[in-house]
């Protein structure tokens, strides 16, 4: 035989290694999805920017005025309350937009899923990358606010930022995979999940600090909540208190576990995605 062409085998159940390989081989398609999302949003740059920071800033204004008018003490946080709040909202907004973005991308690309072949995981990765871009813009605002408020800025800020991202990325990815799988399994979850995400606004230490909570169980739950962890790690860049390495380890483990579970779920969902949509 003069030359052998590469052979593609189609069968039930795709090994994980093939899945990863394809994810890498077709990366151009992922970039074109991301480019499409960014281009559509930033065609008018002013509006594009506005939409990426609109939600966190609106919540910022609402919560700040609620706290100010109720004359609640805000000294517990060890840093300007506005900055504390912004850090929390930046992280919450990221996770929320990854999850909602993935659910949305799955729905709006249903036609594509049933007609074309590309790694379905891109439908989650591309909103994740786009949200990361938006998070960058929000973080610039956070940094500008810190400068303006003359807050303490740690020299370790880049490291804290990196650790915070390492915590929030896997957990957001995992939750997005789980949410998408739930929606594909039963479409009623489409309505339930956004409600849960907004409930997170109050469950997570966004406008209060865990130091104010005395309940032991809630403290333990906090130790396993990598989203809360990512918020506090980011905040560590703006005040001098030390991070507990134990907590960091717990957060890291739980974040990784969520990512693994999520990807596992998604790999199952993916098998029948084109049939279910």
């Amino acid at each position: 035989m003069p030359f052998q062409k590469p052979i593609r085998i189609i069968r039930a159940g795709q090994p994980f290694s093939d899945w990863l390989k394809l994810l890498w081989q077709r990366r151009e398609t992922l970039w074109s999805f991301v480019r499409k999302d960014l281009k559509v949003q930033y065609q008018k740059p002013v509006f594009g920017l506005l939409w990426s920071v609109f939600q966190p800033l609106v919540y910022f204004a609402v919560i700040l005025s609620a706290v100010r008018f109720s004359a609640r003490a805000t000294s517990e946080t060890g840093m300007p309350f506005e900055l504390y709040l912004l850090c929390g909202l930046a992280i919450w907004n990221f996770t929320t937009s990854v999850i909602l973005g993935s659910m949305n991308s799955m729905q709006s690309n249903a036609g594509l899923v049933t007609k074309a072949s590309f790694p379905r995981f891109y439908l989650i990765l591309s909103p994740l990358i786009k949200s990361l871009f938006d998070l960058g813009i929000v973080l610039i605002i956070v940094f500008a606010a810190a400068l303006w408020m003359e807050a303490e800025i740690s020299v370790l800020l880049p490291i804290y930022l990196a650790v915070s991202l390492l915590l929030i990325l896997p957990v957001s990815l995992g939750l997005a995979c789980i949410s998408v799988s739930l929606v594909v399994w039963n479409r009623h979850f489409r309505h339930a999940i956004p409600i849960l995400l907004y409930a997170m606004l109050f469950v997570l230490p966004i406008f209060y600090s865990m130091d104010e909570i005395s309940n032991e169980w809630l403290q333990i739950a906090y130790g396993f909540n990598p989203i809360a962890g990512a918020m506090d790690v980011l905040r560590s860049g703006f005040h001098s208190s030390d991070l507990s390495l134990n907590l960091l380890l717990f957060w890291d483990i739980s974040s990784t576990i969520l990512a693994v579970i999520g990807i596992g779920f998604f790999r199952r969902t993916e098998q029948t995605l084109a049939d279910e949509l």
Binding site: Q4, K5, P6, I7, R8, I9, I10, R11, A12, G13, Q14, G111, V113, T114, K115, A116, S117, Q271, T272, L273, A274, D275
Partner: peptide
């Protein structure tokens, strides 16, 4: 075209493949 997966059985495709379902 790898749009969906078989329940059982196998197919082998030699060479580059593209499908235009739309």
């Amino acid at each position: 075209s790898d749009v969906t997966f078989p329940t059982s059985g196998e197919a082998r495709i030699a060479g580059s493949f593209s499908s235009l379902l739309e």
